[in-house]
Amino acid sequence: MRGEVFAAAGIFLAATGAASADTITVEIAKLAFVPAQVTAHVGDTIVWKNEDFITHTATARNHEWDVTIPAHATGRAVLSKPEVIDYFCRIHPNMRGRITVEEK
């Protein structure tokens, strides 16, 4: 009985979790992350879409992720916890962005 309740609650949480996770697209154009600042929630995915003809990276200052995004391609990272992540391109450190990750 108790086990069933837990199992039911688990299914419910898993379902809402999947339904509410968003994908947020950040474009890279002419050496800039656009928009440079975004707000997201835990579990969301950031997709970087590189419109430039050169490779860039999205590298978190806290080392949580380091995503390489080839020319005219995409890269992604899943946001795992609430925090403010500053990131930059390792190849062109003049490119900077920030993601504010909020509790779901």
Binding site: K30, L31, D52, C89, I91, H92, P93, N94, M95
Partner: peptide, 16 residues
Amino acid sequence: ETGLKIFQGHQQHAEM
């Protein structure tokens, strides 16, 4: 102009 932004990035990277 795009080249300048790329090379400014290289300059900062080299400085680091």
